[in-house]
Design a binder for these strands. Structure first.
Length: 199
DNA sequence: CAAGAGATCATCT
DNA sequence: GATGATCTCTTGA
């Protein structure tokens, strides 16, 4: 039951993305917890990665990624959804890991309410969906994932995942990024029903 | 089923 | 003024 530290996040984004599979994303709301096992992630690896928002330079929106690893990068997309990322590596290395889907662990009833659906498999099987299920919005942007009082963090609960259970794939929804669209920077737990897209 | 369109707005040009 | 690290609903075979 240990909360991941900033040292964990200050490693290479692709390594963090892989290592996050099997860890537990926890959203604390007062005394209640909503949580799920991370089963799908994507790495965005810096200014040279044309799929990475930071490739367009340091702007009001992307400046969070230039900070030291261990804080959240939350952005609003398509006029209706939020996407949750954890910033990785060091200062001025604008890298991050997008958390794409989780498998519900605690608080499934609360998730159903937030998502306005009873379909268990539709609660957290996508980046926009899991933000809705865990009540994650832009107020978490640039906040710490490792501080003592944070309401959003990641735990290691000792779930063991062997490397052969992790599948590598192309990232989703970045067809505009030239050669970068084919890089295998998406990681997911093989056969898990919450993974948003098969390959 | 698969494919396509519509929703809807912050951010960047 | 255009677009997007998405999702849901509708259409049609």
């Amino acid at each position: 039951m240990s909360k991941l530290t900033s040292q964990f996040f200050q490693q290479k984004a692709s390594l963090v993305a892989k290592s996050l599979i099997g860890k537990v994303l926890v959203r604390r709301v007062g005394k209640n917890k909503i949580s799920g096992i991370i089963v799908e992630t994507e790495a965005y690896i810096g200014s040279h990665d044309l799929a990475c928002h930071a490739s367009k330079g340091k702007t009001e929106r992307t400046k969070v990624m230039f900070e030291k690893g261990g804080i959240w990068y939350v952005y609003f997309i398509y006029g209706m959804y939020f996407n949750l990322n954890i910033v990785t590596e060091n200062e001025n290395c604008p890298t991050a890991v997008l958390i794409r889907s989780i498998e519900p662990l605690e608080g499934a009833e609360e998730m159903k309410k937030n998502r306005k659906t009873d379909n268990f498999f539709n609660l957290t099987s996508g980046p926009g969906k899991l933000c809705q299920a865990l009540k994650i919005d832009k107020s978490f942007n640039a906040t710490s994932a490792t501080s003592k009082n944070t309401e959003l963090y990641i735990e290691d609960r000792g779930i063991k995942i062997s490397p052969r259970e992790i599948e590598k794939a192309k990232r989703i929804g970045i067809d505009y990024s030239g050669i970068w669209k084919d890089k295998l920077l998406r990681f997911y737990l093989k056969g898990n029903p919450f993974v948003s897209k098969k390959d």
